[in-house]
């Protein structure tokens, strides 16, 4: 399975079939999720209408970590098996992950102002997510730091793996330290501690964001593969 799709052409043939579906489903889920989040779901008894920021903030935070995790897995795959597509997947994911991390920080800041009375506090959860954002920026910078574009791939993969130590720190920061940020209420052993009327829009938004990542990821992969092909053609022309 893994080696079957190591061929970029074969992979793209499948991906191009999937793309319209994921793009359509993205729109569907985001529309349904946003409608439920903004109109159908109830306001919080304590937080009032500001609770609706959660429907962007929580899925964005989940995406920030999920995309970094998939980048780390793809980097490990490319380092161990020299899988040519894994490299491109990690490379295509990085800017998307960086934007979701920024969105998470931004929405959290906008939520913090009315709820905590401050835009930013230096507690463990916020600081570790900020570090995640810096790691994304460092990864992208390292990728583009070499004159030969293929040369940056391996150092960047090593960096992605080293930076993966940050993921458990983010996840458990709310348990290990006393933070202003609330502890986990979704991914708990005894089921989510949140009312179904708020849980469903959250799930819709998270699925919508994931599908968005897959769709944009395929588009970016297409660009990466075309770019590599153009470079090879140019090289062939100068040699031939």
């Amino acid at each position: 399975m893994m080696h079957r799709f190591a061929n970029p052409t074969r992979f793209m043939r499948v991906a191009n079939v999937i793309l319209p579906w994921t793009a359509g489903l993205t729109l569907l889920f985001l529309a349904a999720g946003l409608y439920q989040a903004l109109f159908a779901s109830p306001a919080d008894y304590q937080q009032g209408e500001t609770v609706r920021i959660m429907y962007i903030h929580v899925p964005a935070a989940y995406m920030a970590m999920m995309i970094y995790a998939s980048m780390a897995v793809a980097s490990a795959t490319s380092l161990i098996w020299k899988h040519p597509l894994a490299d491109m997947i990690a490379r295509a994911s990085a800017p998307i992950g960086a934007v979701f991390t920024f969105l998470c920080l931004l929405s959290g800041s906008l939520w913090g102002q009315p709820m905590w009375g401050t835009w930013w506090v230096w507690d463990a959860r916020l600081t570790s997510v900020l570090i995640l954002f810096f790691l994304y920026l460092g990864y992208i910078a390292l990728l583009n730091a070499f004159d030969d574009p293929a040369r940056g791939a391996k150092p960047a993969a090593i960096l992605a793996l080293v930076g993966a130590v940050n993921l458990p720190i983010i996840k458990f920061s709310v348990d290990w330290w006393n933070t202003l940020h609330q502890p986990a209420s979704l991914a708990k052993m005894d089921g989510p501690a949140i009312d179904p009327s708020m849980l469903w829009p959250l799930i819709f938004m998270a699925v919508g964001f994931t599908l968005f990542y897959i769709s944009v990821g395929i588009l970016r992969l297409r660009g990466e593969i075309a770019g590599a092909r153009i470079r090879n053609l140019r090289l062939g022309m100068t040699h031939g």
């Binding site: 390292l142 070499f146 040369r151």
Partner: peptide, 17 residues
């Protein structure tokens, strides 16, 4: 960052976090 362009600035971006 060995052999990278502007290696010094890049190191700080990678290492400081």
């Amino acid at each position: 960052t060995l052999g990278a362009r502007r290696g010094g600035v890049l190191i700080s971006l990678l290492v400081l976090p």
